[in-house]
Design a protein around this nucleic acid. Structure first.
Length: 625
RNA sequence: GGACCCGUAGCUCAGCCAGGAUAGAGCGCUGGCCUUCUAAGCCAGUGGUCGGGGGUUCGAAUCCCCCCGGGUCCGCCA
């Protein structure tokens, strides 16, 4: 199937002409092409300053197939598109998958995202991670790459051990059927954690006695934890009281947690089975939340498995054999002093940045998270024969991610290191709230979904829609709110804004799609493109044509640059033009056959583009709202 | 102290990487538009020393340097 990219064709025509006329490289012209600030000036512009030798006299009048005319204004050569030809080019080849251009060099790519600790429900930060990761995976797949999506389950860390410690005090119960598993476990986790902290602080205070400043600060800390404990007790009195009682009886809760962690790392039964079961329960709840948003994984990889099957140990041995292990403060570590300028550049290490050594093995012989991550990264490459691995992880992990790349490099896995991408995103602030997962204070993704869904539900009911539409609009609102902001920006999230379904929102685009769809669907068959009266291509109709023609380019830059926000901005603009036009002209009731054909095709173009664009972002276009 | 990210209208954000012509949206606020293809829409108005200062350039929101503000990291936590 031939894939059309109409606007690129226009640019190419202009670039070829100019490069011939000026004797410069066509790609140089191509890169210089921009869109004029005002449409009266033209549809395309090329600043000539750098292309034209000073003082040379120019005859640049040009008329081609897709370019109607050109004129020079100041330093610019402005060009007007031949809308008649562009219309034919765009619509006579328009297929269902218009704009979804496949890459000519498909790669095998692993995307790891979300990877939340299996100890509590997902909160707002995970939401950004999950939606970005899922969107990237979808975009890359559509672009024609082979994509493998993974979730790393951190079941061997301290947090899992704390939850399991709490569970052990409760006698390893199953979460009650009436509650969502991750929510219930999250409560157990927060209670356990807070009780351990209080316990610890009390001991510290006894030893400190009244030794001035430190004593006071610890007292303040204790007060805070006690307040949190009250909140938690209100949420689940029975659980809290039982845990308080049991943990109070343990002479050394901290030691018990440590012991669990070690037993799990060694794979000792029955702890191994019991703890794994807890993690699996939490994941069930997490998956339930994600599936509402249309987010799924190809595999869940347990950290524990990497420890038990010896792959972590293998890494350590390999590092030792390669001679890259040094002793740092008594523990085995990798130092990055030896990297050359060139190697640092290849690994994307900032110039003046002194990468801290990475401890692989603790003095007590146990391993750390980054050590396991080395084994995990190699597993991702190997199991999928991947060319590239993308880790969607918050920016605060940029140091460990850099260490990971550098260590892989030093161990001889150079391609793996260089092709490992940390897709970083900024923090999410929630207006008027300080969040803490460890204290059970957070806005969960479930809460957000519920609140958005309630508002959507009311509005849908008042216009007589169905249940399915409510869920899809809720999903659209949430996904769009996240991806329309550039990932590097710190984002502030407010429910207020998420339930604003005016322009610049998922539901706005879904609504606009429904409008276009309902027009097109009222036709039994589309008139032929030749019938369209292209002399009518003026004003918003012409703008729509140009915007629709740009879609393939937008899809390509969105996927190549891994920037979903490019697509979001584009779709919003297209919808704006369409809605303005829709309000000013009749389409189905247009009496003149040629004009009607033109309008119908434009509506078809809008429908196709918004539909494909939304789908690419993981938002379902709706034929009726 | 060092490193990274961010700073654009009252608020939330595009535009910056690959410098170009009067800096764009939405929300908010003011006032209009539903017997006509879906009013989650449309129209009119309101609003900006692009954090500040230097520099490079014919040209800087965009590139470079310094400074200020917000966030993050520099753990034998993850």
């Amino acid at each position: 199937m031939t894939q059309v990219d109409p606007f690129s064709d226009v640019k190419k025509e202009l670039a070829l002409h100019l490069s011939a006329a000026l004797g410069v490289d066509p790609t140089q012209v191509m890169e210089g092409i921009e869109i004029p600030p005002s449409e009266e000036l033209g549809d395309l512009a090329v600043p000539l300053r750098e292309l034209v030798p000073k003082g040379s006299h120019l005859e640049l009048q040009f008329k081609g197939k897709l370019i109607k005319s050109t004129k020079i204004i100041g330093i610019y050569l402005n060009a007007f598109v031949n809308e008649d030809e562009l219309f034919r080019l765009t619509f006579s080849n328009m297929t269902e998958d218009y704009g979804i251009l496949r890459t000519s060099s498909p790669l095998r790519i692993v995307v790891e995202h979300t990877s939340a600790n299996p100890v509590h429900p997902l909160h707002i930060g995970h939401l950004r991670n999950a939606i970005l990761g899922d969107t990237l995976a979808r975009l890359l797949k559509l672009r024609g790459h082979e994509v493998n999506v993974r979730f790393y389950v951190n079941d061997a860390g301290r947090q899992s051990a704390i939850l399991s410690y709490g569970m052990s005090r409760l006698g390893w119960p199953d979460p009650p059927i009436e509650s969502k598993k991750d929510v219930w476990l999250g409560l157990v986790y927060a209670c356990t954690n807070v009780l351990i902290e209080i316990n610890k602080l009390k001991k510290v205070l006894e030893e400190l006695k009244e030794k001035h400043e430190e004593y006071l600060s610890k007292v303040r800390e204790l007060d805070e934890f006690v307040a949190v404990a009250k909140e938690l007790r209100d949420k689940g009195q029975e659980i809290f009281d039982k845990l308080a009682d049991e943990i109070g009886r343990d002479p050394d809760p901290e030691g018990s947690v440590q012991k669990l962690m070690q037993q799990y790392e060694r794979g000792e039964e029955p702890i191994r089975t019991l703890m794994r079961k807890v993690s699996t329960y939490a994941l069930e709840g997490i998956s339930q939340t994600l599936s509402f948003l249309g987010i799924y994984f190809d595999s869940f990889d347990y950290e524990g498995d990497l420890l038990w099957n010896g792959s972590v140990e293998k890494i350590i041995n390999e590092a030792r054999e390669k001679g890259i292990l040094t002793i740092h403060k008594g523990a085995s570590a990798v130092s990055f002093q030896g990297l050359t300028e060139e190697e640092r550049r290849a690994l994307r290490i900032p110039k003046g940045y002194d990468v801290p050594p990475l401890i692989l093995v603790r003095a007590d012989g146990t391993t750390l998270y980054p050590t396991r991550d080395i084994a995990y990264t190699l597993k991702k490459y190997k199991e999928f024969s991947a060319h590239r691995v993308i880790n969607v992880i918050a920016e605060e992990q940029s140091t460990p991610q850099t260490q990971l790349r550098a260590t892989l490099y030093l161990m001889g896995f150079r391609n793996e290191a260089v092709n490992l991408l940390h897709y970083s995103y900024g923090m999410v602030n929630v207006e008027g709230m300080r969040m803490s997962g460890r204290r059970g204070r957070y806005i969960s993704v479930d809460d957000i979904i519920d609140q958005v869904r309630a508002v959507v539900g009311n509005r849908v009911k008042s216009r007589g829609g169905n249940e399915n539409v409510i869920d899809e609009l809720t999903k659209g609102a949430i996904r769009f709110a996240i991806i329309s902001v550039a990932p590097t920006k710190p984002m502030s999230f407010s429910i207020q804004r998420a339930i604003d379904f005016n322009q610049n929102s998922g539901p706005y685009l879904q609504y606009t799609y429904a409008r276009a769809h309902s027009i097109v669907s009222k036709m039994e068959s589309m008139p032929s493109v030749e019938k369209a009266d292209t002399s009518e291509l003026v004003g918003d109709k012409r703008r729509l044509l140009l915007q629709v023609a740009k879609f393939p380019e937008v899809f390509v830059s969105t996927t190549e640059q891994l920037k979903p926000e490019i697509m979001a901005t584009y779709l919003n603009k297209l919808a704006d033009i369409f809605n303005r036009w829709y309000d000013s002209e009749r389409i189905l009731q247009e009496p003149a056959e040629g004009k009607r054909a033109l309008k119908l095709w434009l509506a078809m173009g809008v429908k196709t583009v918004i539909g494909n664009g939304l789908s690419a972002l993981g938002i379902n276009p709706l034929s009726r709202i």
